[in-house]
Amino acid sequence: MNQDIDRKKTLEQLEGIQWPAPPPNATALVNAAHELRKLPVGSLDAHGLSRLIGQDIGIPWLLPIALNILHRTAHDHSLREFYDDDLLTAALTRTAHVWRSNPRWVTKMKEIIAALDDTSLYVQEDIRTFLKESGDLK
Rank of each mutant, 00 (worst) to 15 (best):
P64S: 06
P40M: 07
T10V: 05
T89Q: 11
H47W: 10
L39Q: 15
F82N: 06
R104D: 13
V41L: 06
L79T: 04
H77C: 10
P23K: 15
Q55W: 03
R128C: 04
I59N: 09
K9I: 08
L79A: 11
Q3K: 13
P24A: 13
D6G: 05
P64C: 05
A90D: 08
I65Q: 10
G58E: 03
T107M: 10
N31E: 14
T27K: 02
I127E: 06
Y83F: 15
A66K: 10
I65G: 09
L29K: 09
R100N: 12
P22N: 01
A33E: 09
L87Y: 05
R7Q: 13
E12Q: 10
K38R: 15
V98D: 14
H71C: 03
I5G: 07
L87F: 06
T89A: 13
N31T: 10
P103Q: 11
L44D: 01
T107G: 04
N102G: 03
A114E: 14
S43E: 12
H47Y: 12
L92P: 10
T107Q: 14
I65S: 09
E111T: 11
L36G: 07
P60L: 06
I69Y: 05
D117R: 13
P64I: 03
L36P: 06
I113T: 06
V98I: 13
I57G: 04
P40K: 07
L36F: 11
H77F: 01
G16W: 12
V106T: 12
F82K: 04
V30L: 11
R128T: 08
Q13Y: 01
Q124S: 14
K108Q: 14
A21W: 09
E125R: 12
I113H: 09
D117L: 07
I113E: 03
Y122T: 11
L87H: 05
I5L: 07
G54T: 06
L116K: 02
R37T: 04
Q18R: 15
A21G: 02
L14D: 01
P20M: 07
H71E: 13
T119W: 05
T119G: 00
V106N: 02
L79C: 04
K38V: 00
R7A: 09
E12Y: 01
D76V: 02
L87T: 07
E111F: 12
P60E: 11
A21Y: 12
I112Q: 07
A32I: 01
A115T: 08
D76S: 08
L87Q: 05
E12I: 00
L67K: 06
A91E: 05
D85M: 07
T93P: 01
V123P: 03
V106E: 08
R37D: 10
F82H: 09
G58S: 05
A26Q: 06
H77T: 01
F82V: 02
A33I: 09
T89V: 10
M109H: 04
D86K: 13
D117N: 14
A91L: 08
L88V: 03
P23I: 02
I127M: 05
R51L: 15
A66R: 11
A114S: 14
L70Y: 04
E15G: 03
H71I: 00
